[in-house]
Simulated assay, not measured.
Amino acid sequence: MYHWGKRIARCVMGVLGVLFCGTGYSADLTGGGSSFAAPLYRGWGKGFYHQTGLSLTYQSVGSGAGQKLVMAAGVDFGASDLPLADTLLDSNSLYQFPTALGAIVVIINVPGVASNQMKLDGPTLAALFDGTITTWADPRLRALNPGLRLPDLDVLPIHREEASGTSHVFVDYLHNVAPDWKAGMWADGPEARGNDGVAASVRQSIGGIGFVEYAFARQNRLNTVRLKNHAGQCVTPDRTSFTSAATSADWSHADHYAVNLLKAPAPQAWPIMTATFVLVPAHPTDKTAAVATKTFFRYGLKQGDDVARDLDYVPLPTNVKDRILSGWP
């Protein structure tokens, strides 16, 4: 069953390249899942192919689909922005590990306010998204931003219309900083699909505010805000604050590497970070594919940091990479 299921998956995943199976299409390694992680694995795949001659086909089908694919033995590895619970990992004999980190940032379109000029803390950010704060001239915003001229302009909060790893992490953050905030408490306002949809909506909406993966903010040249972190410091979203969060997180006590990056203790840590995860069979029946999979991720973790940074991911700390590779079953 494993080999037939995997053969069918390889055929489906090769459709974009050859339209149907049996025309010489071949993938030495298959993966599927997280859309956030897709550019990273495709970037690693290019270097991996040049070094080993082994090819990777990766389908960006979403975290939930990635989990289902690997559980059904339809791919060599599944990718998910949300870690699986211990019980699911055990019952499906899966090994879970992170491959890189990403930052979620807040973007705004407020006339006269340049990127990273505005400062926000968690409770105020929650109030902007639940509709408690309705104008950019609100006294709470002025108190956090003395000297910054804030217009008497309606706040237009924009959030994702579909379930996503980005939304899940952002909601967790809001609940951490404002315990009464729960999923679904979005104020009336536009919804958008995907990070690119939110980015486009904020760019087109005067008074807009939204949240996206950092890469989308940078690539679209959107204005971001500074945020007060767990240590009480107001920090700028940049490589320094992202790396500070990654290195100060409590990796050693995280079950299956599902570390809480929302409470990284370092003074300069960015407060809204998430890891993207890979799932592989802990007891694979296809030994050849298992060796290729491990070789691919060894290449990515050991030689892929430059690719990760160029694509706006944050590489894992070296000691975490070493633990992942040494603990691989």
Score class of each variant (00 low, 15 high):
residue 190 P to Q: 10
residue 199 A to N: 08
residue 196 D to R: 09
residue 82 L to P: 03
residue 301 L to A: 08
residue 111 P to R: 13
residue 281 P to Q: 06
residue 189 G to K: 06
residue 146 P to W: 00
residue 220 N to C: 07
residue 5 G to N: 15
residue 175 H to M: 07
residue 47 G to M: 10
residue 207 G to P: 03
residue 64 G to C: 02
residue 129 F to R: 03
residue 250 D to M: 02
residue 225 V to F: 00
residue 117 Q to K: 07
residue 19 L to N: 09
residue 236 T to F: 07
residue 261 L to G: 01
residue 285 T to G: 15
residue 70 V to W: 05
residue 137 A to L: 02
residue 279 L to A: 06
residue 324 I to E: 07
residue 101 L to E: 09
residue 68 K to T: 14
residue 103 A to D: 06
residue 300 G to Y: 01
residue 238 D to Q: 10
residue 160 R to Y: 13
residue 1 M to C: 05
residue 50 H to D: 15
residue 108 I to R: 01
residue 120 L to W: 09
residue 290 A to D: 12
residue 167 S to A: 11
residue 6 K to I: 02
residue 296 F to E: 06
residue 235 V to I: 13
residue 120 L to G: 12
residue 233 Q to Y: 03
residue 66 G to Q: 01
residue 292 A to P: 01
residue 67 Q to F: 01
residue 309 R to K: 11
residue 243 T to F: 04
residue 173 Y to W: 08
residue 158 I to Y: 07
residue 196 D to L: 09
residue 18 V to N: 13
residue 177 V to P: 10
residue 229 N to C: 09
residue 322 D to S: 05
residue 80 S to C: 05
residue 204 Q to C: 10
residue 263 K to T: 12
residue 191 E to H: 10
residue 179 P to T: 05
residue 22 G to S: 04
residue 114 A to P: 01
residue 93 S to M: 10
residue 102 G to H: 04
residue 97 F to D: 02
residue 16 L to V: 03
residue 159 H to L: 09
